[in-house]
């Protein structure tokens, strides 16, 4: 037993220094050299002001913006220092009630849309920070935004198409639209 204690302690300290200090420091150095933008959080700046991260969703409720998916983080939606899903089970009445409210809000805001509502618009994401919606969810909102901004729906649609991102190598994952980037593009005048 005694002859095991010294190796256990010293090997632990040695490997801790290598894997717990040197390794993260090395990766940080490599990351900052090769991918400084990504390593710092893919932050979007306007002038000197940071207005968000490409990867972190924000809440929108105004009629002239595309809306993100509902967020289950608390107390603020899209709270990027407390990521969380709803964890509501499929038979939980709280899930049904919440979706019912969201459906009603969407129906009121989009009187022209009579078909089924895209599922991602009324369900919360796993992280509560989903920066994307599906292209179908973006199309669903086009008429409202065109009306609020007094522009042709066709122009908004073209912008949505330009901001549609495809699965990695067109295989892995699903097609998405980045809500923050799309809204910033709308505010910037929507030039594609």
């Amino acid at each position: 037993m005694k002859t095991l204690i010294r190796p256990a302690l010293t090997l632990f300290v040695l490997l801790s220094v290598v894997t717990g200090l040197i390794y993260p420091a090395l990766v940080t150095g490599l990351a900052k050299m090769a991918f400084p933008y990504q390593a710092a959080g893919s932050l979007i700046t306007q002038g000197k002001v940071v207005v968000g991260s490409e990867l972190i969703g924000q809440s929108f409720s105004g009629s002239s913006y595309f809306w993100s998916r509902p967020s289950a983080t608390g107390p603020m939606p899209n709270n990027a220092s407390a990521s969380s899903g709803s964890n509501l089970g499929p038979t939980n009445s709280a899930l049904v009630d919440a979706v019912k409210d969201r459906v009603a809000t969407l129906r009121t805001a989009h009187p022209d849309q009579t078909g089924p509502i895209p599922a991602d618009l009324v369900t919360t994401s796993a992280s509560g920070l989903d920066p994307h919606i599906s292209p179908a969810a973006a199309y669903y909102q086009i008429n409202r935004i065109a009306k609020a901004r007094g522009v042709e729906p066709e122009n908004v649609k073209r912008l949505v198409d330009a901001y549609t991102e495809y699965p990695s190598w067109r295989i892995f994952g699903d097609s998405t639209v980045n809500v923050l980037k799309l809204n910033l593009a709308l505010d910037a005048g929507g030039k594609v």
């Binding site: 899903g85 979706v99 599922a119 991602d120 369900t123 994401s125 992280s127 892995f172 994952g173 699903d174």
Partner: peptide, 29 residues
């Protein structure tokens, strides 16, 4: 499959069970 309790409310059933999933991964990933 979509949650039948939600499709009853008018939610599109073709994209599956999206509660607790991220858009960029979707159902398959």
């Amino acid at each position: 499959h979509a949650n039948p309790l939600l499709t009853q409310l008018g939610v599109d059933g073709t994209s599956g069970n999206m509660e607790g999933k991220e858009t960029r991964f979707g159902i398959t990933a």
